[in-house]
Design a protein around this nucleic acid. Structure first.
Lengths: 247, 247
DNA sequence: CAGTGGTCTAGACCACATT
DNA sequence: ATGTGGTCTAGACCACTGT
């Protein structure tokens, strides 16, 4: 059994891992905010007392995880959620020709509910905790394509209202970032096939019993803390979910 | 417009990219075969006339793409398809508890057909070209879970027979690698929901009209050449498709 | 023990972006 | 002109593996 230090890293872990951890700590603390520039590699090296090469290795990994973004000649920046970034990184539905087009979003319902045991387990909270539940209808060319049922622990999103959601300028993940200082860093998705019930059939303009792609997405922030649980129901008649495996 | 050299790399490309290209060329040529060790970083540096640091950067990328595998103290090896590796890298179906178990495979049909325009386009061959078509039934605990319809261009798999497929020791990708020197390097998957027709209902032991997850997988080798086109139909009643997005 | 990959350093030079 | 990240080098030392 390996010993584990207070930082969560094994004792005698590589220096660059320690540097990476410290950078993430500063990001989590908000020392450098989304969209802002971080100190140059030279300055980071001085701050942590390591060589530039070691800083580079730490930043390499953070850049590979899309937490930092490098721009040659300009500097290194904290990744920020934008519409384009969401479409590129999190939105996996493409047209039959492989073309990606982001749908128009319309909020259908906003409510406060209590977490059942499944939701609570996935979100890592107690069953019965209060959640916001949002239902979005996403359409392309006026035709409904996706229904999203989104669940957010209320304690992480104080004073959220339907109006705030409806009048947000960008994606929901931008709202989490800008209004609640929550950065979605990665997602886990579980996919199944299901049949449209009456509600989904009505929202998606399909027959009851039509086949739908059901995606359960868990969005996570620092330390793998769950931010959002989302059930998406997709009409895959003219669209599909795309995934690539670099082996 | 950037100039492109004969190697496909932009003129003035980084040295390590050139080294990476040369290593991949040797892999494609079979100079180093799957499972074999490649020369040490020191020797590669001497061979290509670059420093070890530059070799490391090239090997770093190849290791990140799972084309090479490093073992500290032992050396660097050419990735080889094994059962475990297939399950870890290409098989995305998990039980409801997240547990991955690889099913028992049974060949149901083996035929020679002609590519229709859709298959031909996806495989990058001419419509009407001859294909092998294999149908596999995959079961867990005696219960059918997946049906695979697999299409292989005949010219890449000379003398393939049902018997060879049935008596192979490992996965199909191992067969491609060991008997035909074809290395599957990455896959693209497109997912939709569909309804079971009579054939699928019978093979999967579900009702006609039951919802199924339909996965179209394209397997690719060097230079993004298509190797295999696979249609998988999954009964997601007790299993699901898992995908992770590192943002 | 010798050989391998993994880490870390220090410095030179390049390509790029901004001032 | 200055500062940034990107590349490349050379070498030291460490951790691990097999003989």
């Amino acid at each position: 059994m390996n010993q584990i230090s207070l930082s969560g890293l094994p004792l005698g872990a590589p220096l660059y891992q320690e540097v990476k951890r410290k950078i993430m700590e500063s990001l989590r603390n908000g020392e450098w905010k989304p969209g802002e520039i971080v100190p140059s590699e030279k300055r980071l090296g001085e701050r942590f007392g390591v060589s530039i090469g070691t800083v580079r290795k730490a930043v390499d990994e953070l850049a590979a995880e899309n937490i930092l973004i490098r721009h040659q000649g300009r500097g290194t920046f904290v990744a920020s959620h934008t519409h384009d970034r969401y479409v590129f990184g999190f939105f996996h539905i493409v047209g039959q020709d492989g073309h990606k087009e982001y749908p128009k979003v319309e909020l259908q319902a906003f409510a406060s509910i209590k977490a059942d045991s499944d939701m609570a387990q996935r979100l890592g909270i107690r069953a019965g905790s209060k959640l916001f539940r949002l239902t979005n209808q996403l359409s392309i060319a006026g035709k409904p394509l996706i229904v999203d049922d989104i669940h957010l622990p209320e304690r992480n999103f104080p004073h959220l209202t339907a109006d705030v959601v409806r009048t947000r300028p960008g994606t929901l993940y931008q709202l989490y970032q800008d209004n609640f200082a929550i950065a979605v860093l990665r997602t886990e998705e579980r996919l199944r096939a299901c049949l449209a019930d009456e509600r989904l059939a009505s929202l998606l303009d399909v027959e009851v019993g039509a086949p739908l792609l059901h995606i359960v997405r868990l969005a996570l922030t620092f330390n793998d803390l769950a931010v959002e649980l989302r059930h998406s129901y997709v009409n895959t008649t003219h669209h599909e979910y795309f995934a690539e495996e670099h082996q």
